[in-house]
Simulated assay, not measured.
Amino acid sequence: MARAPRLTITAINLLCLIVLCRATESPQYSVVHEESDFEIRCYRDAMWMSATVNDLSFQKATLLGFHRLFQFIQGANLNYSRVAMTSPVVTSLVPEAGPLHSSAYVVRFYLPAKFQDAPPTPLPELNLEPYTWESHFVAVRKFSGFATDDKVLKEAANLATSLSLSPWANSTTATEYSYSIAQYDSPFRLIGRNNEVWVDVDASAFVDSDRKATF
């Protein structure tokens, strides 16, 4: 019985490997500012499908949430529609959520252009919800390797330090999420992995209105 959870996680990893290798579309954004170790992006309005997972572990929450999303894109929806894989898979930390102030995560899948205006309705048992991520600015720090529990905490702290030493020191905005981790690769890619930590920022004081208007 003790081996069952590991076998389950292995199966989910294999699913991630299969679908992430076929990932094509990604949410559109514009880079509005660059520093040596982070950049500021503006993402356009976009529709995502989201899975909330109540768990303390970032890694486990991401795998379990993506497993539900995987079922959705494979046709577990009221339309029986197959949905093409996109990247990245984004996991956002919800601070002090749930009983006893435990953490929760929201795992998000970007819907391809074909389904942006009319996403398929997930089967109720998947407990998924469409989410309109409105146009917003984020500070982005890239990092390589595997996005482990310890590493995402370290990278989020590194981004916070970089922001505190920059003109963006007081620009972080209060949202329902502390930070998000974007993963672009399957769990079985060993080298050249691409991950990012995102933090919402208020760019109104730094980006001129003409540039925002043309985005």
Rank of each mutant, 00 (worst) to 15 (best):
F109A: 00
P124I: 13
W133N: 13
W133F: 07
L123S: 12
L100E: 13
Y105C: 01
T132C: 09
F137A: 08
P124H: 14
Q116C: 09
P119D: 02
P124C: 14
Y131G: 00
A113P: 02
L100A: 13
T132A: 11
P130H: 01
S135R: 15
A118V: 03
Q116S: 08
R108M: 13
S135N: 14
P122R: 14
T132H: 12
E134C: 05
S103F: 01
S103N: 11
A97G: 09
P119F: 03
E125S: 15
D117L: 06
P120I: 11
A118I: 06
E129T: 12
E125Y: 15
P130C: 01
V138Y: 03
L128W: 05
N127P: 08
L123G: 11
V138M: 08
S135Q: 15
L111D: 05
P130Y: 07
G98L: 02
D117M: 07
P119C: 00
V107I: 05
Y110L: 05
R108L: 09
E125M: 14
L100T: 13
A139C: 11
F115Q: 00
E125W: 15
S135I: 10
V107D: 04
H136W: 06
A113K: 12
V107R: 03
P120W: 06
K114I: 13
Q116G: 05
E134M: 09
E96R: 12
A97S: 05
F115I: 06
G98Q: 06
N127T: 13
A104W: 00
P99S: 09
F115V: 01
V138G: 02
P119E: 02
V107K: 03
P122M: 12
E96P: 04
L111S: 02
V107A: 07
K114R: 14
V138A: 04
F115R: 08
Y131E: 00
N127I: 10
A113Q: 08
K114S: 08
P99G: 04
E96M: 09
F137S: 11
A97F: 01
A139Q: 05
S102G: 11
A97V: 03
Y110I: 06
E96S: 10
A97W: 10
Y110W: 10
G98V: 02
T121K: 15
G98P: 06
A139T: 13
L123F: 13
R108Q: 11
S102H: 13
S135Y: 09
A104S: 13
G98M: 02
T121A: 15
P112M: 11
Y110D: 04
W133P: 01
A118N: 10
V106C: 09
A139M: 12
F137P: 00
Y110N: 07
L111P: 01
V107T: 08
A118Q: 08
A113E: 15
V138L: 04
P99D: 15
N127C: 12
F115L: 03
E134A: 08
F115P: 01
A97T: 07
L123P: 12
E129G: 02
G98A: 04
V138H: 02
T121P: 07
P119V: 00
Y110H: 14
T132R: 14
F109S: 00
F109E: 01
L100G: 10
Y105I: 07
A104T: 03
Y105W: 14
P130Q: 06
P130D: 06
P99M: 08
S103I: 07
W133H: 14
T132Y: 10
F109G: 01
V106R: 04
S103L: 05
